[in-house]
Computed example of a mutant assay.
Amino acid sequence: MSLKLRINEDMKTAMRAKDSARLGAIRLLMAAMKQREVDERIDLDDAGVIAVIEKMLKQRKDSITQYEAAKRQDLADAEKFEVDVLMAYMPQALSTAEVEAIIDKALADSGAKAPSEMGKVIALIKPQVAGRADMGEISKLVKARLGN
């Protein structure tokens, strides 16, 4: 079953169960997916859906940080719930060892030696880890390796 169909089925299940919080989070995801399809005149595949989810997760995490700084724990908790719902659709995360191996291979393949060549390395890594690792963390690891 495609990810898009799974999300649609989960929305129907949430409707039947009268789980309004979960239903709201899934509807936000469905709206974001539809918006991207209309804007780009495409039909999203699983990779496209994952890209939409990643963007929404980043937005939610930023919001959580801001809400907690403003001492609005009620709003932060709502965002955390949405993060949990969205994370259910993400692929299995890579282990630290797998990420290290991918970075090692990308460094070897690109021949990068200086921090100014970081873009070449990230370009090789990004397609391999899409949706399965935090690019911010990978960027820090690559920068640390090239900075030596």
Rank of each mutant, 00 (worst) to 15 (best):
I50L: 01
I102R: 15
R41C: 05
R16W: 06
S2F: 09
A25Q: 15
E98M: 06
E54P: 05
A114G: 01
K143R: 14
E117D: 07
L23S: 07
S110E: 14
A32Y: 03
L141C: 07
E100L: 03
G147P: 04
Q66R: 11
N8Y: 09
I64G: 02
S95A: 14
R36L: 14
K80D: 07
K55G: 15
L124W: 08
V49C: 15
S95H: 08
M135H: 02
L44T: 06
L86E: 12
M30S: 09
D39H: 06
T13I: 06
I7W: 04
S2E: 13
D45L: 00
A93E: 12
R36C: 10
I42G: 03
Q92R: 04
K120P: 04
A47Y: 15
K71S: 09
K105C: 04
R132Y: 02
L3D: 07
V142L: 08
S20L: 14
A123M: 14
D39T: 13
R27P: 00
D39I: 02
L94H: 01
K4L: 06
S95I: 05
A76N: 03
R72H: 09
L146D: 07
A97S: 04
S2Q: 11
K18N: 09
E68Q: 05
A144F: 13
E37D: 09
S63M: 12
M118Y: 00
R60P: 01
K126L: 12
L94D: 05
D43Q: 13
A47I: 14
A21R: 09
Q66H: 08
A97G: 02
M135V: 03
V49L: 14
L28R: 13
R145D: 13
L29I: 11
R132T: 01
L86I: 13
Q92G: 02
R36S: 14
R36G: 10
G119S: 15
V99M: 03
Q73C: 00
S116H: 08
N8K: 10
E68T: 03
M11R: 15
A69E: 12
A133K: 00
G48A: 10
E98P: 02
D39M: 12
N148Q: 10
L3H: 02
I103K: 13
G147N: 05
S20W: 13
K113N: 11
N148Y: 05
E68M: 11
L146P: 08
R132I: 01
N148H: 08
E100M: 08
Q73A: 03
L94R: 01
S110L: 15
V52A: 03
S63E: 15
I50M: 01
A31D: 15
A93Q: 13
K12M: 12
K126I: 12
